[in-house]
Design a protein around this nucleic acid. Structure first.
Lengths: 185, 185
DNA sequence: GTCTATAAGTCGATAGAC
DNA sequence: GTCTATCGACTTATAGAC
């Protein structure tokens, strides 16, 4: 009698937990053996669910992206104007700052390694950018890209210099985004 | 009779050429042997000039930072207002885009590795931020940080998606920086 | 299958001949 | 100053006991 497991749930759980491993070691620095060990499964089981280390990585990114956008959209109030929506997004990013800093590192680290599927990383950044454009009511992708640049730049700078403010009410800090939204109207 | 070499010039040359190596392999992925081989010196000679791999890396960053800022300052016209100076900076970054993308990767990659001198990476980002604040005539570091965030975010996005515009004249792209300078007056 | 002992390779760093 | 040869520490690969 075969062991009854929720195949998809286990797969999702493995993807979830592999995120931190890639964040800690990077793509090349993380071995299949380490993944199996830290996730408490055998390498054989891992290869039953995923065909390669790269498959784990790419499916993990897809999984995390869906979850990130889903959670952010769920946080948006029903009747909110552009400025309010931008504010909610910034609060959302600020609360999960370490997560997004890890995500940024994971993507860049993978992108640089020899043999990377760079086109998939492009799709990943476009996915986040489109999510911003579509759910915040910005008129075009260029505007979403500018907002995303400010967020990414702030995540990088705050990683290196935790003293930098992420207060969206600071007039010339990240808060400039809201003024930018005004200009854009 | 000892071989006559310009000690400082050779050291600077080694630091110059090591930049690309760290950009290609990352800090942990690059070995002393690879550095020696690619720079056409023996490991013994390398250790004569630098006390460790980390020393090479940190001195290389210092060297590159000084050169970057020196070149950028040299590109600034004598009598230019804030908007013009920002424009010159953006053109400077755009022309050396691959270099700054490499620099960003190098710093983040080193920052994440176990045992990193994180305080030095903080000093590095503060060095670039201060250079922006002091040479562009921005009133405060917060404003410089915001400008730097836009630049960093654009470098990251354009690395992943080369299709994104870096045209500083695009009204809601990176060009928003100049409008932001107006607001700041 | 799982564990462990050991071989093999690689690392950063050093010593000493030239 | 430069080189070759090597160190001790560490990681990875292999293999055989159980």
């Amino acid at each position: 009698m075969p062991k009854i497991v929720d195949h998809d749930a286990l797969r999702a759980d493995l993807l979830d937990r592999s995120f931190d491993l890639f964040a800690r070691r990077g793509f090349e620095g993380l071995t299949i053996r380490q993944i199996a060990e830290e996730l408490d499964v055998s390498t054989g089981s891992l290869y039953h669910y995923f065909e390669s280390k790269e498959a784990i990585f790419l499916q993990m990114l897809e999984h995390v992206g869906q979850r990130d956008v889903g959670m952010a959209v769920a946080a948006l109030p029903a009747n909110a104007n552009v400025q309010e929506r931008i504010g909610v997004l910034l609060d959302f990013v600020a609360k999960r700052e370490a997560h997004f800093q890890n995500l940024l590192f994971i993507v860049l680290d993978y992108f640089r390694h020899p043999g990377a599927e760079r086109a998939v990383m492009r799709q990943t950044i476009l996915f986040y950018r489109s999510a911003i454009a579509n759910n915040l009511g910005l008129q075009d992708e260029t505007r979403a890209a500018t907002l995303l640049s400010l967020i990414i730049g702030h995540l990088v700078q705050r990683l290196l210099d935790p003293g930098l403010s992420f207060d969206r009410k600071s007039k010339f800090g990240i808060g400039i985004i809201e003024k930018f939204a005004e200009v854009g109207k």
